[in-house]
Design a binder for these strands. Structure first.
Lengths: 345, 345
DNA sequence: TTTAGCACTCTCGGTGTTCGAGTGCTAACT
DNA sequence: AGTTAGCACTCGAACACCGAGAGTGCTAAA
């Protein structure tokens, strides 16, 4: 639905004023604040129209108007211009993230921290999934007389370590045997196909040698699993409790939801590829009906992968949040790209 | 201060009733609920006395009495009997924790989760400090053409991995050289003495070889540092928000405090060795003035080390919480003890 | 189409008023 | 001397009421 120029101007002014002050805005004060060249009565007429069309509501008869989710939606889609991040802001993002550019997990934890800090809201980020990657190599390190560590190096640059225990005394020779046999079996295998049946077939192939291996095989399976699985980083839940318009129940609901790995992951999975804004009840989750979620995906080697998202009150500065998210997404994408490029032959 | 038998009985009844209901308790209702064989007037007289002595307060003239922190203190010290954990409860604790008995960190994260789940409150736990431990061994794993991982194995069983990057192409031979040279330098060295100066002296000793090593040395220093430092696990902050008597501001303050690694660590450090209860304003931190902290330390090989703690409303079931904490502490102590015993020669 | 004017509506903050739970005190009782 | 019944008193919670102020919708004139 397209709105006439003046209606749009008035709607925009209302949304911006409300985002700023959080107070319902009346016809008179709107004229005072913005330099609109019409009388309050005209504004009132337009407002009545916008109310009929579903863009505004009145908390009660004698109060000003408050924008509905539909108004925010229109504002975000048709009016708002993204406030681009300044040069110095970009540099800050790059240098901050570069400092934690060790592994995908630490990059994304850093990104989440950074986003939360810049927006002053809660933030979540997911690592790229590893469904398509393969085992690059598996190494072993002795950590004790009966314990050792398996290091699973995946083709997407993710490295996972798992400890395991053996009944027998571990020697360098034994680890050598493990290394040879297991790399032969696992190298190049897709992470997603390393499951219980695969492990059992592998064990069968090793014959009696497999008796020595239950711990190792489990460790590898676990390692492959966690290298394959998306992991969710989050940051700044307390900031949410300081955000305006967020009362106890809302904050509690949102934080509880964000802490529930399963539900959160399933929501994040379903987010679109582009930057998107979910306002209030547009969110599928009732816990988020009082909040908005702004999300985007970063691209690794041109392919959209993990998501970066911000959760905050409906009344937030969408323009600023979107541009911060997109800037960080850019940087995260390149950093992770470099990680995978350089490391593998 | 010792109280006469009847006074003590009344105080106890008031505290227990208030813990249960959260309502100020009056003389009449107290008689109804407990089987006290005196009249309400007598109870009133005793109550007036207890109020003078500072054990009770009235929110207002015509309300019942509410126990003060002093009353809880007296109750915890003189009246309360610890509710021992049942046999099945103990078994549950043991089997749950055994499942995550890989490393000290995972044990303590598991312990924190478990405590929070059992008490329905927020919980924090710290790993043992590594000030006294030494480097057992350092191993290297190649992870890419220019990257590798240093594995620092400490004498207390803590294992830390750090990634590093080299300008030159890494080969197994180079890692071999690193392994020899660095284990010679670092094996047996106290973690606490591996700092910037130590690294610099070491680098000087390697002569021109050290030019190849800045990344490795940094990785080792970082690894040693994180193996030495106490790490704080926490769990169940959302549960705190569901606890009775915890309003938005209190919850926010407490959670913000718990999220501040530095402040939290300094509080935990100063906790006594025995099980202790800090009630309301007894806490040094103003953020915790509305809450109570119950804490204990687990012992590894007979030596008190990390702490387990619960944070919750003043009105909590101290007996239950204390016994849960102590049970978990027992199990954590033995599990960590086994970890360090078995793994080193 | 815009605007001035006006009657109307509804919240907010302050002010009684009632009701009930709980108290402290006193005098009688054991 | 300690305990208890009785009673007057206190204070907060709940509710109704009121006036001020902000904002509206409608109408009639520009």
């Amino acid at each position: 639905m397209e709105l006439a120029a003046r209606k749009q101007k008035i709607l925009s002014a209302i949304v911006e004023s409300f985002i700023r002050t959080g107070e319902p805005v009346g016809s008179k004060s709107l004229i005072n604040e913005t330099g609109l060249d019409v009388s309050s009565a005209t504004v009132r007429n337009e407002m009545a129209d916008l109310t009929n069309k579903g863009f505004l509501v009145q908390p009660h008869t004698s109060a000003g108007r408050v924008p509905t989710a539909q108004a925010y939606r229109y504002y975000v889609d048709n009016i708002m211009k993204a406030t681009p991040v300044s040069q110095s802001g970009r540099e800050y993002i790059e240098t901050t993230l570069y400092r934690s550019a060790d592994s995908p997990e630490s990059i994304l934890q850093g990104a989440s921290d950074l986003i939360s800090q810049l927006t002053n809201l809660a933030s979540v980020a997911t690592t790229p999934d590893g469904e398509e990657s393969r085992v690059h190599r598996i190494s072993f390190v002795q950590t004790g007389s009966h314990t050792a560590m398996a290091v699973v190096i995946a083709s997407n640059g993710i490295i996972k370590t798992k400890l395991f225990r053996c009944e027998f005394l571990i020697t360098p020779e034994i680890l050598e045997v493990f290394d040879k046999a297991l790399n032969k079996t696992f190298s190049g295998v897709k992470l997603s196909s390393i499951n219980q049946p695969f492990i059992q077939t592998a064990a069968a192939r090793f014959g009696e040698l497999s008796l020595f291996m239950p711990g190792v095989l489990m460790a590898i399976m676990d390692g492959a699993k966690s290298a394959r699985e998306i992991s969710v980083c989050h940051s700044g839940y307390t900031r949410l409790m300081f955000a305006p318009d967020i009362d106890f129940l809302t904050a509690r609901g949102v934080i509880e939801f964000l802490n529930n790995e399963h539900d959160l992951a399933s929501m994040l999975e379903n987010l679109p590829i582009d930057t998107s804004v979910s306002i209030g009840y547009e969110n599928s989750r009732t816990e988020l009906a009082q909040s908005s979620v702004v999300s985007t995906r970063y691209a690794v080697d041109g392919k959209p992968s993990g998501v970066l998202a911000v959760v905050g009150p409906v009344r937030m500065d969408y323009g600023r949040v979107i541009s911060i998210l997109e800037s960080v997404a850019d940087t995260v994408g390149t950093l992770i790209g470099e990680l995978t490029d350089i490391d593998l032959d």
